[in-house]
Structures are given as C-alpha cells and as structure tokens.
Write a protein that binds this DNA or RNA. Structure first.
Length: 749
DNA sequence: CTGGGCATCT
DNA sequence: AGATGCC
C-alpha cells in the first residue's frame, strides 16, 4: 500500500531532493556505513558484517491462502477470513471488489455481497503452515526470524558469500524481480553483486515455498531488516523487490508518516506527535538530546536510526515459541460458570498443543480483559503462578486429561484473584498461557532449535540445521536442502495422512475431541460421530457401576450420588440447572457460536455427518485435508450461494438445539430425587467457593483423591489451615504454599 | 463492531 | 504485571 505507486518519480522528485538533503545533513555517512559504525555498540558475539544481505518474506493474504489450499474451490470466489466481526484478511478476488483487511463484516458485505466468509478464529492450520514455511527457510540457512505467522526475516549473508566465491564470473549478475526505483535493466548488478545474489536466493526460496507448500508471497532484499521489510511490499502480490543502498533515501522518503516505520506503534506515534513530530523529516531534524529526554537513550537512538533507514539489529533465530497461549474474546462474560466453561475449553486445546510441543511448561498465566466504560479498549490484567511438576509432567507425558483436571482449579484460583465475583463483572476476553517452557530432553537444547516444536514426543532430534549451504549451483540449490526434511515438516505431513487412513497412536484431533469425555482408557481409534453423539447426550441417567478407580475415572461423568450428596446446596442447584447440564462435557465440544449475521452454509471440513452430529471443537479442528469427497461437497456449497445474496459464512457449527433436551430432563429428575445436604466435608484447605465452581467430574476426581487419602501432597499438611470462610480478600494471597499440594489451589486467597 | 498470537522491555 | 508493538 505504501509503495504501490512506486515507479512514479515525477512529482516525487522535488520532495525527494529536499528530503535527501536533510538526510545527508543529519547523516554524513551512507546508511551502510552508519550501520556498520552503529554496530560497534553491539556487543554481540559476531559483529554484524558490514555488508549483510537480509531477506524479508511476507506471504500473501496468509490465512486466505491457507483456506484456499484447504479448499481450492475458494480460489475463484471473493474470500474473507472472519474473526468475530472482522475480516482479518481476504484473498485478492475480494480485494478487487473493495474488501480490505480489518474491515468489519458489515462494510465488507456492502462492498461485496458475494463475499464468502470462512471463520478464522482457530489458528491451528495457520500456525502449522506458518511453521512449515519457517522450517523450509531454515533448511537453507539457520538465521531465520519469524515475525508473526506470515513473515520471516532471513540473513543470507553467508550463503551469498559462498556463492560469490564460487560462482566466479559465470553469473551475469542480473537481479531477480524488481529493483526499487529502477526500471528493468537499469540496475547494474555488478555494482551490487551481493544484493543481486540475494535476489536470486529470494527467488529460489519463493519458488520453493510455492512448489513445496503451494504458497505465494513477496520478498524484500536489502542490507538490514528494516529496509528489507519496507521494500518487500513494493510490489504485491507474489513479487520481490531489491533495495540498493543508493535508493535508501528514496524509500524512506516515500513513507507518509512516522507510524509507517516498523517499531513505531500507536503510542510512540502519539508521543512523537506531542513533540510536534509527524513526518520522517521532522524526526530527523529533531535534536537527539530532546528525544532522549522523552524516550530515554536507547529508544531515542533507535528512533533516530530507524528514520534514517539504519537498523543494525541482527536476525535472531526464533526457534520454538517461548509461550503457548489460547484466547477468546466476546461481548460479555459475566457468570462464573461461563468463565469456567471457557477456561476449560481454552485449556483443553492448549494442553493438547503443549503436549505436541513436547516441552514442559513451568508457568501458567490467566489474562482477562474487563469491560469498562472509560477504558473500553484495553487494560488486560493477568495473574500467573508456577505449575507444579507433577502437573506439568502429565501434560508432556500425554495424560492431558488428568493435567486438565488439575489445571482448571489452578486457573480458577487465578481467576478469583483477578475478579471479585461477589459483585457484577463483565469480561470481554480470556486468555490462558503456558510459559517458561522447559525442554525435556537432557541434551535437547540445540541452540534456538525449532525442532522441539515439530518433533513431538521423540528424543531430541539432532539439530537439523545446515550451517553452510551446498555449493551446487543455482540449478541444484533448490534441492540441496532436501536432506533433512524428514526431521521437520515431513513429520507433520505424515501425521496428517496417517490420520486419514488408519488409527494411529499419535495424538490425533479425534482423540483431542474426546478429551473431557473421559472415555474408558485410551481410545485410540477415533469414534464414529454417532457414538460421540450418544456419549455426549446420554450422560444424564443414573450411574450404574462407575465406582472408584480414581486415577482413571470414566465417562460418562454421571452424577455420582455419593459425591453429589456431599456438595453444597448451591452447587447442587447449579449442577442441576439446564445450563450447567449443557455445559458439562459437551461444553468442551461446542464452539462458541457467536451470532453470525451472514447466512450460513455448512461446509464441513471433516464430513457432513460428523459436523451435524457432533460439532468439532473450535480449537482443535480435525485436520484431514480435503479429500475428493469433501472437495465436491464444498464446491457444491460454494457454487450455490445464498439466494439472499448476502455474504456467506463457511463454517462448521453446531445446529441449534442439539444438546438441550437431555439437560432439561436431568433437571427435573435431579431436583426431585436428590436430597439437599449441607454437610460437606472438605479438607481444611479447600475453598468451597472454588470447589463449587468446578465441573462435576473435576469435583469427583478431587473427592476421590481426598477419600482415598492418597494425596498428591508430599509434605504433611501441617500448614496453617486456610480459613474456610467465603470471604475473599484479594490482597493477601501471600504465602500459601506447599508446592506440590493440590489442595493449595483451593485455599481462599 | 478491533482478532488471536507472539515478543520485548520495564 | 503491565505496556507496547507486530502481524
């Protein structure tokens, strides 16, 4: 968008000249020289080479591309990816008709009534594809840094030097793709052999992305990250651009405002504006000392550098993520029960992701966003706590269900630190996060290895990163990285295919969907949809023979009379309420069905019957790739747009009223047959309030533990017993701790 | 009627 | 723990 009118140098010329003057005034050195000089302050191990060749890759409308790969029928229709009420991105067919990123659904429909919408709130597929991209790049060169899901920086300086020494003169030294502010053969590659080679590498990598992953994208080639990023968008989509040092001032001059600089966000822009600084030139001419006063030394200097196109920051290999989180936003969440269900839902998928990652989280964090009239927009608040080892191990060992059972109370405790539930509250977002991720393998480390993210559950794979590239010439270079593919992306692909065909022991999405149902033992073979349906709706009756066996308690999580009698009266009521019944295990399965104004065309990604009978969870979506049948299904649906001519939503949602009947039945039955009881015997440390908010199955699990006196606690509970009062003082959560005592989670805080 | 993740710095 | 920034 910034540079779409790039090659027009007509009226730009005057401003440019003026701008250049100011540029050279404040920066006597060329940008490259300035960068080299600035790098002196960088104490990093390897002083950044004076001449770096940095690539920036930016995939075209990434989410839309992924969806079009999953369903090729979407390629030719205007497609928007919907999150809540927003089109987060859209394909180019839609853009042609005026749809833009971050446009509201309403506006998008006006612009483009035929717009096909796909829900994109579940990032699973995007995340997976995103890492495939990074892995592919990593197979060429270890210095790859991710920026979001759809962008990657790459430092190919070494590759370039290698090619430079070996290609002798044979190369014609032409540039691949565009050269910024040069038209065609204008650019003399001989003057910039490294950048020219960089453009070749970029072209090869883009081709690899296309042939191996089916993705298109843009690339920028420059001498630092800032410039590479700025120039990569000069020609869109699916093109690449190289920025030569002599054109740095050109591209900087084209920036319409300081906000366009990567690293300058809303807040920084405001603060700069308060100083009277709006244009790049304003900032260039602003005295550094004054800037230091406002922003401090490092930030001030960095701003000064940015505005000159100077950026000595290294390409830092991203490796596996340092935290995994899952969140959902909504208009209003005001009951503890809803919070509990949401936390369950979020944790469920997060635990599964964590397990696939293979590392063990040491810290758990819960974040909420509270609605407030004044501060409607932001203000998130969070509380975090350590994760006891025995719980963390259950995540990595695959006992996700048991981990879940213990994590939910933990999360609820944090929730009560954040929210005073005795008075009304109004949340608009909940986020759960695992951080402080600890690699399991003793020698797993491998610097910045992204490997652990892909090779779940296996022994620490060798660092699959090739430090130096093959010398084979350009014709071969596309394949030279093939060697270790099996370590990385391949493993994920294998997972996909194996799921389709045979039952597999690797954690599948089907199995994930069962989580919370607590079926007998480990259900390896995915169940039929009808079975799932049965399980979720038939759990209300009596509990025939489900006794004891605390470790693997089974489903259906029926009401255990014995346990139920022990519950406080208000919980009994809550449990018996229809809403709660619906929320029980099935709550883990139902997606939060935010009302979609648009017409809905149900185009299941799994199979129609599955979707109708038992809607998949919104987070862990079974990822069978489109087979022929699904393809035809979707095509059919897409080709039959809603006659109403309104926008069309493609999703898989639960048909209304699927699970309500049995719940109400249960209400009647339960109310009449179960006695009220006030004699609940909790262990001293248990906070009844917290306990009461747990779902039945969780309560039962805990009760069983307590009964069996087989506590997880290692140390005698000689602790000062928590007051069992219902009062909540939010302040003193102080020293409540025997670290490994599950009961501690229930102590009133 | 502004999403869902991630990172870094303080 | 919060603020800020990026996509």
């Amino acid at each position: 968008m910034l540079f779409e009118m790039d090659n027009s140098e007509d009226e730009m010329e005057e401003d440019d000249t003026e701008w250049k003057n100011s540029f050279t005034d404040s920066a006597p050195l060329s940008p490259a020289a300035a960068a080299a000089a600035a790098s002196g302050s960088n104490l990093s191990k390897t002083p950044t080479p004076a001449h770096r060749v940095i690539l920036h890759f930016d995939l075209d409308c990434f989410y839309a591309q992924v969806e079009m790969i999953r369903n090729p029928a979407l390629r030719d229709v205007p497609l928007g990816i919907q999150q809540k009420y927003i089109i987060v991105t859209c394909n180019y067919v839609a853009r042609q008709q005026g749809v833009t990123k971050l446009m509201s659904i309403t506006d998008a429909k006006e612009k483009c009534p035929q717009l096909v919408l796909v829900k994109g709130e579940d990032l699973t597929h995007y995340r997976e594809m995103s890492y495939k991209v990074t892995e592919l790049l990593l197979s060429y060169c270890p210095l790859v840094e991710r920026l979001g899901f759809d962008e990657n920086y790459m430092d190919v300086t070494e590759m370039v030097e290698t090619r430079l020494t070996q290609t002798v003169e044979s190369n014609n030294y032409s540039f691949k793709g565009h050269v910024y502010n040069h038209s065609g053969a204008d650019a003399k590659a001989a003057d910039h052999p490294r950048l020219a080679l960089g453009s070749h590498i970029a072209a090869e990598l883009r081709e690899a992305l296309h042939s191996k992953l089916g993705l298109t994208g843009c690339a920028g080639v420059a001498t630092n990250k800032l410039l590479a990023k700025l120039v990569s968008g000069a020609f869109k989509p699916n093109q690449q651009t190289t920025l030569l040092p002599e054109n740095v001032s050109d591209i900087m001059g084209c920036l319409s405002g300081l906000r366009k600089l990567p690293g300058v966000g809303h807040q920084t822009t405001k603060r700069l504006q308060a100083l009277g600084l709006v244009s790049l030139k304003d900032l260039q001419l602003f005295p550094l000392t004054d800037l230091v006063r406002e922003f401090g030394g490092p930030s001030a200097q960095r701003l000064k550098n940015l505005v000159l196109g100077v950026d000595d920051s290294p390409v830092t290999p991203t490796g596996a993520p340092q935290s995994l989180s899952d969140e959902d936003s909504f208009k209003k969440m005001s009951s503890t029960k809803d919070v509990l269900e949401k936390i369950q839902q979020l944790l469920n998928s997060l635990v599964e992701r964590m397990h696939k990652d293979g590392r063990q989280p040491q810290t758990f964090r819960l974040t909420v966003r509270k609605y407030s009239a004044t501060n409607k927009w932001f203000s998130r608040e969070s509380r975090q706590c350590p994760i006891p080892n025995h719980i963390g191990q259950k995540i990595t060992s695959g006992s996700g269900d048991e981990a879940l059972v213990q994590l939910v109370p933990l999360a609820m405790k944090l929730f009560h630190k954040l929210v005073d539930t005795s008075s009304a509250f109004h949340l608009t977002l909940i986020n759960v996060c695992f951080s402080n991720l600890q690699a399991r393998g003793p020698a797993a480390s491998g610097k910045g290895s992204i490997t652990s993210f892909f090779t779940h559950s296996t022994s620490p794979a060798k660092t699959q990163i090739l430090s130096s590239q093959s010398q084979d010439n350009s014709s071969q270079s596309g394949d030279s990285h093939h060697v270790d593919h099996r370590f990385s992306a391949r493993s994920m692909i294998t997972q996909h295919t194996s799921q389709k065909t045979v039952s597999t022991k690797s954690p599948s999405s089907s199995e994930a969907a069962l989580r919370g149902f607590k079926r007998k033992q480990s259900t390896v073979v995915p169940l039929e949809a009808s079975q799932l349906q049965k399980a979720s709706c038939s759990t209300v009756g009596s509990d025939p023979d489900e006794t004891n066996n605390t470790v693997t308690y089974r489903l259906p999580p029926n009401v255990d009379l014995e346990v139920f009698r022990l519950l406080p009266e208000e919980i009994q009521k809550e449990v018996l309420s229809p809403a709660y019944a619906n929320s029980l295990p099935s709550s883990l399965m139902t997606t939060t069905n935010q009302s979609t104004p648009a017409a809905v065309v149900d185009i299941p990604h799994i199979s129609e019957s599955t979707s109708l009978l038992c809607p998949p969870p919104s987070k862990p979506v079974p990822q069978s790739f489109p087979d022929s049948q699904n393809l035809t299904d979707r095509k059919e649906a897409v080709n039959k747009p809603d006659p109403s001519d309104r926008a069309t939503t493609v999703n898989h949602q639960q048909p209304p009223g699927t699970s309500s009947v049995s719940g109400e039945n249960m209400t009647e039955e339960g109310r009449s047959s179960f006695p009220r009881s006030s004699d609940c015997e909790f262990p001293v440390n248990v906070d009844p309030k917290v306990f009461s908010e747990l779902p039945l199955d969780v309560q039962r699990e805990l009760m069983s533990e307590w009964k069996q006196q087989k506590p997880v606690l290692k140390t005698p509970a000689s602790r000062k017993p928590g007051r069992s009062s219902m009062t909540k003082d939010k302040k003193s959560a102080g020293k409540s701790s025997q670290a490994n005592n599950l009961l501690n989670y229930f102590k009133p805080s």
